[in-house]
Computed example of a mutant assay.
Amino acid sequence: MSDEQQLPERSRIVQQHLTDAGITARVRELPDSTRTAAEAAAALGCEVGAIASSLLFLADDEPVLVMTSGRHRVDTDILAGQLGAQTVVMASAKQVRAVTGQAIGGVAPVGHPSPVRTVIDAALAGYETIWAAAGTPHTVMPLTFEQLTALTGGPRIRVAAD
């Protein structure tokens, strides 16, 4: 059985999206959880800022996936201004699962039942390699900022004061 066939189903879907986009990065399964940016950074031996945390918000009740640097928290007022939204609130775990088909801590930038509007934290551009979840809390994938942008079609925006 190939490494790809041994991946969880949700991660195989993510890997197929990478392949279809012409991105050669491979999904990796880690022995320990990478649910938080700090856990992922420790497991990968990288800076916490290089972790692309996938956070789902509701902007005027419409889902928006924010790929943010693990080095800071999203400021919902700044995000609302960047999105031109009146209200921005964090989605519940149930909403995250319904929209993305993936559990909190494992939400990938792709591989959802239907496309999700995505925006990318400008702070991620400062890292040569960024790491994003790949469908489960135990799987990750290395990407460049350019690959993440191409994969999601998401614009680069500011999501925090730093």
Rank of each mutant, 00 (worst) to 15 (best):
V74R: 10
A123T: 05
M67R: 05
A103Y: 03
V107N: 14
T100W: 07
T76R: 10
A103I: 10
T87K: 11
R117F: 06
G101F: 07
T76M: 09
P109Q: 14
V119F: 05
T129W: 14
L83R: 00
G81D: 15
V140G: 07
Q82H: 00
Y127D: 08
S114T: 13
G106K: 01
I78K: 05
A98L: 14
S92D: 12
G126C: 12
A122Y: 11
A108I: 06
Q147S: 13
A125Y: 12
R71F: 01
T139W: 01
L79K: 01
L79V: 07
T144D: 05
G70I: 05
G105D: 13
Q147Y: 14
S92W: 15
L79S: 06
A122S: 15
G135M: 06
Q86G: 13
I120G: 14
P109I: 13
A80M: 14
S92Q: 12
V119C: 08
V116T: 02
Y127G: 03
H112R: 01
T87I: 04
R71V: 03
H72M: 12
R117M: 07
G81C: 13
A123Y: 06
V110G: 06
R97I: 14
A134Y: 00
A108W: 02
G105L: 09
G81M: 14
V88W: 14
A85C: 12
W131A: 07
P137C: 05
T136Y: 00
V119E: 08
M141V: 15
L83T: 04
F145Q: 05
V89S: 10
A91L: 10
V74P: 14
G106T: 06
I130N: 04
T139L: 11
V89M: 10
I120E: 13
M90G: 12
L124Q: 13
G111D: 03
D77N: 15
A133L: 01
A91K: 08
V116H: 00
E128Q: 14
G135S: 03
A103H: 02
Q86V: 05
M67P: 02
T129P: 09
G84T: 04
T144R: 03
R73M: 11
V140Y: 00
A125C: 12
F145E: 01
E128S: 13
V110F: 11
G81T: 13
V140A: 08
A103N: 09
V74E: 15
V66P: 00
V116D: 01
A134R: 00
T144G: 11
V88R: 07
V107I: 15
G84A: 01
